[in-house]
Write a protein that binds this DNA or RNA. Sequence first.
DNA 1: CTCGTTTTGTCCTTCCGTTCACAAACTCCT
DNA 2: AGGAGTTTGTGAACGGAAGGACAAAACGAG
Lengths: 203, 203
Amino acid sequence: MARLPIYLRALSALVEDNIGTCSSEDLATATGVNSAKLRKDLSYLGSYGTRGVGYDVDYLRYQIAREVGLTQDWPVIIVGIGNLGHALANYSGFRSRGFRVVALLDAAPEFKDTEVAGLPVRPFVELEEIVRAQSVSIGVISTPAQAAQDVADRMVGAGITSILNFAPTVLSVPEGVDVRKVDLSIELQILAYHEQRKAEVAP
Amino acid sequence: MARLPIYLRALSALVEDNIGTCSSEDLATATGVNSAKLRKDLSYLGSYGTRGVGYDVDYLRYQIAREVGLTQDWPVIIVGIGNLGHALANYSGFRSRGFRVVALLDAAPEFKDTEVAGLPVRPFVELEEIVRAQSVSIGVISTPAQAAQDVADRMVGAGITSILNFAPTVLSVPEGVDVRKVDLSIELQILAYHEQRKAEVAP
DNA sequence: CTCGTTTTGTCCTTCCGTTCACAAACTCCT
DNA sequence: AGGAGTTTGTGAACGGAAGGACAAAACGAG
């Protein structure tokens, strides 16, 4: 479920505040979901609550983290060190949630011998070697659109089975490989759509 | 509909390739959608196809752009010029799709007199003035999580009615204000979840 | 002009996610 | 110990999106 990470974040905030127990209603308002939906989501993982009391924050957090797979460290590589790749390499939210950026790659020769976020930028041809050496299964693509499919093919060939794609292209990958796409301008377009509808109704 | 921008991008690619006409099947495979779903989406906008022929690429593109609201220019401000804000300010995909970044803001005084992507970074206190002067209705938040709610409140107070939030927090905003959230680490967590399930089944 | 081919637009069925509502289970107070 | 008050877990109803399937419409060949 795509909502588990949201619950996880809210639970982490509760842990910070030394709150030991919470009801589904509490979590629901904190995360902006319906409380029945939240309970159903959690019951799908098992019966981790106590009727009349609620959920043990620490315990529930661990159970969700285990379900999502965050009890282990996931090595990640980032291909395409432009503005966005730069930002991703420096993003602290990855490391704090069980992801470790093990390598940055870029095909452009001008990155030779440069460092970003404490990691050397390595030439793209070393992809296979790095993926195998570090058992990487998750790759991030932050290249321009026209390079994305090539990068994806190489990633899949090297053994990567999950791709987070920031390039504005539809990637085609074989069965068994997961792709998630984040398209910044599409998000803005969706907002513009709603903006326009507001403007049409009002005046 | 959230799929319209995807169709729009595929249509733009077809225009580049000088393709004047396409069937729903063509567009569907290019965007990775079921062709029946695509036709239903398009028919919701009106009857812009010709049976036995398909859709006129240029005409359809214009109609979708009009529906989404991209025939006009949308001024946008970005608050929080860290790594991510930097990348967003430089992202060319915004301008090329009808969005114009009119101001960058940050509360930190060390940004005084600096420029990013050709725009001066202005102090956060000038938010209201900028929003009013430029009639901005869309704001982007790329601050740390703890500042995000404050920024959102100020944005709403200044008259902004659509917010794209990159901070890992649930924002609470009044009725009539749209918020879209992009959480980079949640995307990775969803991939990790699927990765783990693959690993459980295989060995 | 007619027939065969192609493709749209849409009806209808199916399915999945969401929400309501409530019994079961637990705590606390008396 | 028992009753009042909470809160979970889930059965059942609801709604809407997705996909299959097909009639209507356009085009081209003969």
